[in-house]
């Protein structure tokens, strides 16, 4: 029950995108369609689970003064490994997400969770936190991607809902990213503060 609670916490109460406003760069940069948004979310989640677990595992042996550099090295290791694995087995996706894959390193969500949660909790709980926060991030990115894809091209996950000619391209382009995220955030805020 406690683990489910941690996951729920990451998904809704501390949703990294809508509540904590963390990791904005990939949120805006990779959500041109639902599928790329979801892929980015899942990639980040994979790194987050690994980094959370390893930070939690070494939390007792790392001196406090050097913990941040150690966390950065751990995160960067997993990101680089992910980058190589994606280049090898998912080259098309790797090309689409491009520079945002190595930039997972500087995603504040990872260092934030390492410091705020994993360095104080056990390995299993940290993994659950990684799943929860990761899911919250993935859901937010997928939702944003789906909205932009729907408004811009009339498709969701590549399935046509209405003809593309009626879509407004602006939502797939850069300004649409900011505007749709702003509106989604307002909706989320409206329902969560009622």
């Amino acid at each position: 029950m406690k683990l489910l609670n941690i996951i729920y916490n990451g998904l809704v109460r501390e949703n990294p995108t809508f509540v904590l406003l963390l990791g904005m760069c990939p949120t805006l940069g990779t959500t041109g369609s639902a599928i790329t948004g979801m892929s980015m979310g899942l990639a980040t989640m994979a790194v987050l689970i690994c980094s959370n677990m390893s930070v939690s595992a070494v939390r007792r042996i790392v001196p406090a003064a050097v913990r941040i550099p150690v966390y950065i090295v751990l995160i960067a290791t997993f990101v680089s490994a992910l980058q190589m694995l994606m280049a090898a087995y998912l080259p098309a996706l790797n090309a689409t997400l491009g520079i945002f894959i190595p930039l997972i390193v500087v995603n504040c969500i990872l260092l934030g969770r390492a410091e705020a949660f994993a360095s104080r909790n056990g390995v299993i709980a940290s993994a659950a936190d990684g799943i929860g926060i990761g899911l919250g991030f993935t859901v937010a990115l997928t939702l944003l991607g789906a909205c932009r894809e729907f408004l811009g091209t009339g498709k969701v996950f590549g399935f046509e809902i209405y003809p593309e000619t009626y879509g407004s391209l602006i939502f797939v382009l850069a300004p649409g990213a900011f505007i749709v995220l702003g509106l989604l955030m307002a909706v989320f805020k409206h329902f969560s503060t009622r």
């Binding site: 042996i61 050097v66 090295v73 290791t77 680089s80 490994a81 190589m84 694995l85 090898a88």
Partner: peptide, 22 residues
């Protein structure tokens, strides 16, 4: 701690690299 973490991560990455190069 810093050195061993650095060496460890270098080893892991080198291993993954050799695995994915092909």
């Amino acid at each position: 701690v810093l050195t061993s973490v650095g060496i460890l991560s270098g080893l892991i990455l080198g291993w993954v690299h050799s695995l994915t190069e092909g």
